[in-house]
Each structure stands twice: as structure tokens, then as C-alpha cells.
Amino acid sequence: MSDHQRADARRNYTRILAVAEAEVAVHGAGASLEQIARTAGVGSATVRRHFPTRRALVEAVSRTRIEALCVRAQELTGHGDSRESLLDWLGDVVAYCVSARGLAAALSYEGVEPESVHENSCSMALEEAAGALLSRAVRDGAVTAGVTVSDLITLAVGVVLATEHHADPAARADRLFGLAVAGLSPQQ
């Protein structure tokens, strides 16, 4: 590939990603790949060359927020009450998923095969970043042994997907996530 072709490919990637971010913000993870191609001024094949699956596109669009959540997990690790730190981080995951259409879908494990070429890099990044946060909470007895970051992400994603069409999705997601964490029994 010549330098000119590489430069064109980089420009196409940047343009497609910018258009995809706008489309996903409006239409969520179901944004039309054909509409993205038209708006970016490229063919559908060019979009698919850069993003072979819809998940790959949504993950690329979500990358900045995923990186911010990873940094937040690192900031909270080792500071304050371990349960509170973990819940603060999970609250951020829920809030980000509510505010960034498509992020919950990017974190969803649905349809991801363990041997898939296109693994869920967003969830894997969060699992790695929040591992120490969860381990500390388990070690302190604040979280049941055997709970995984994957479990927690799945719970957060489920709450967000269940509330995305509610009149006030942020408030509803926050309430349901709080119920899930506290449990249904009155506090003693």
C-alpha cells in the first residue's frame, strides 16, 4: 500500500468514525451502516473494511468513554471504603451507558463467542481495569466471593437497556441499580 493510499485510508477511517459517533448518538447501536457510509461519502465496503462488524463500529465509537471508565477504576482502587469505591465506579458505568447511546450495547455480552475474532474489547478493558477494585472489595468482605467484573457489567448493562425508553432513563436506571445493589429486604 502506498503512502497516498494509507493517508486516504486514515482520512476515511477518521471521517467514518466521526459520522458514526453522530449517528450512534442519535440512533444508538442500531445506527444504519449504510447511512453512515452515505454521510461519510464512502461506500459500504469501505465502512466494512474498517469496521467488519456493527460491534466493532460501536466499540470504536465508545472507546473514549471506556478509557475514561478505566482511568476512573484506577483512581478509585485503594482509596476509601472498598465497597463504596466499587459502587461509585459501577454508578459511573451506569451513568455513562445512559448518557452515551450505544455504550450499553458495546458492553453487552450477547452473541459474543469466546473464540470470536472480534472479542468484546470494551468489556475486556473494563474487566481488566476494575479487577483490583473488585478484588479489594471481596477481600474486605464487602462483596461476595465469586462475583466477577463481568457479572457487574452485565447487571449494569441490563439495567440500562431495560430503562433506555423510560421518560427519565437516568433516574430510573439509578433507582433500579440501587435496588439491585441494596437488595429487596429492608436494611437491618
Rank of each mutant, 00 (worst) to 15 (best):
G111L: 01
L107D: 02
R139H: 10
L176T: 03
D168G: 03
Q5S: 10
F177K: 07
Y96N: 06
T163N: 07
D92C: 03
C97H: 06
A145R: 14
A106P: 03
T148V: 01
A37N: 05
L176P: 04
A100T: 13
H118V: 03
H166C: 06
V47I: 12
T77H: 09
A68P: 06
M1E: 08
L57F: 08
T163W: 05
G91E: 13
A105E: 15
A29V: 10
A73E: 09
L76D: 11
E84F: 00
G102R: 02
G30I: 06
V143T: 11
A145V: 03
A25W: 12
L179Y: 14
D81F: 01
A29F: 08
M1I: 03
R83G: 14
R175V: 11
T148D: 05
S62M: 09
A125Q: 13
L33R: 12
A182P: 08
A137T: 09
A162Q: 11
L107Y: 05
R48G: 02
A167Y: 08
A25T: 13
H4C: 00
V93D: 11
G102A: 07
S121A: 12
A182K: 10
G131I: 08
G91A: 06
C70V: 03
A40D: 14
L76F: 07
A170F: 14
L126Q: 10
A95N: 09
L57E: 04
A31L: 06
E84M: 00
R101A: 10
H165W: 10
L161A: 04
S135F: 02
S2I: 03
L133T: 01
A142K: 10
E59C: 07
C70P: 00
P52E: 10
M1Q: 07
Y13A: 00
E75D: 15
A56D: 14
D88W: 00
R139M: 06
V93A: 08
V42S: 00
A137F: 07
L179T: 07
D168P: 04
F177N: 06
G102H: 03
G111N: 05
Q187I: 07
E127V: 02
T148E: 09
Q5K: 09
A132P: 14
A56T: 13
Y13G: 00
V94M: 07
L86N: 04
V24I: 14
R65V: 01
S85Q: 11
G131H: 12
E164H: 07
E84Q: 04
E164Q: 13
G131S: 15
A156D: 11
A40K: 05
